[in-house]
Design a protein around this nucleic acid. Structure first.
Lengths: 158, 158
DNA sequence: TTGACATCGTTGCCTTTGCAACGAATTGTG
DNA sequence: CACAATTCGTTGCAAAGGCAACGATGTCAA
């Protein structure tokens, strides 16, 4: 708060930097808020089921859309290829997901929920839905604008 | 969309799962949008200056608040302790940040921008400000509600 | 048909992350 | 003053992530 610093002779005079408050910077705020939301939910399944975020996304998408290839997950659940592949491998090892070769195109792997995976989702999905409800109630009147803002961010090419 | 599946004898009958579309799930949407914003900005400095997100946060906070300890960065820039420590170490190696022991409390390390770090920020901050401006223009009428929503998410204890 | 080109999923390699433990320094308590 | 408890920053270690390359498969056009 020293508007006119004494400028001691041995202190190099530096161009003043533009004012910039990280706390008002949108990429930062979004990142922190997103981390917070993910962490809040993850507490519900991470410790209890050994499921991380990538696994969660795979499971949800399989539950919602049925059998899917790794490529589908990459495109539709925003999972980088190797991330999706390894998450699927972990889920297969845990017995929640079955990997079967696709008959039509043998490059594809068909991932699907096992009975255990289905049962797991029967537990997890209600938790997620409740979390979503809580958020919607918290945001209330701002929810619509938030979603519109998110849409715009996602539509923008950059 | 087969509402009444044939229920073949060898197909175990499973409780139908609640409808759940990842694309409408807020933690997911926030995470994807945040990643997108960070990536958009990071392109401006990552390749060109070898600066990653943690380094960026350290630099910005030092530019904004002057000399800070690792603990300050942890608290005020949402950087986990070791992340802040290592980012500071990388920045010191790159010559952008100076680490000096704090006279009053010798447990603390005082991090500050070097002349080179100051010059770097004189380049980077305008980029960040322009990016913020672009975002604000894109969001336009929804900006206020977005910020209010972010505030609520951050205030909530969970 | 054949050969160039594209796509799919996995893997190797290296970096980054997260967590816990540690030594050094400081604070608080009796 | 001693000495337990706390705080600060770093580091070891195992897990996760990112990227590029690979083999296998599929497509397409000459």
């Amino acid at each position: 708060m020293d508007d006119t610093p004494p400028s001691l002779p041995d202190m190099p005079v530096e161009t003043p930097l533009p004012a910039f408050d990280l706390d008002r910077f949108l990429p930062y705020r979004m990142s922190v808020a997103a981390e917070r939301l993910s962490a809040g939910l993850a507490r519900a399944y991470r410790a209890q089921f050994g499921i991380g975020v990538p696994e969660w996304r795979v499971l949800v998408h399989l539950a919602h859309a049925g059998a899917q290839s790794v490529r589908d997950l990459e495109r539709r659940a925003n999972l980088e290829k190797s991330k999706a592949s390894r998450a699927a491998a972990r889920l297969e090892a845990a017995g929640y997901v079955a990997k079967t070769p696709n008959a039509g195109d043998r490059r594809l792997v068909s991932l699907s929920l096992t009975v255990e995976g289905h049962a797991l989702m029967a537990e997890l999905l209600p938790l997620a839905l409740a979390y979503q409800k809580r958020l919607e109630a918290l945001l209330a009147d701002h929810l619509g604008a938030l979603e519109a803002a998110l849409d715009r961010m996602m539509d923008e090419p950059a």
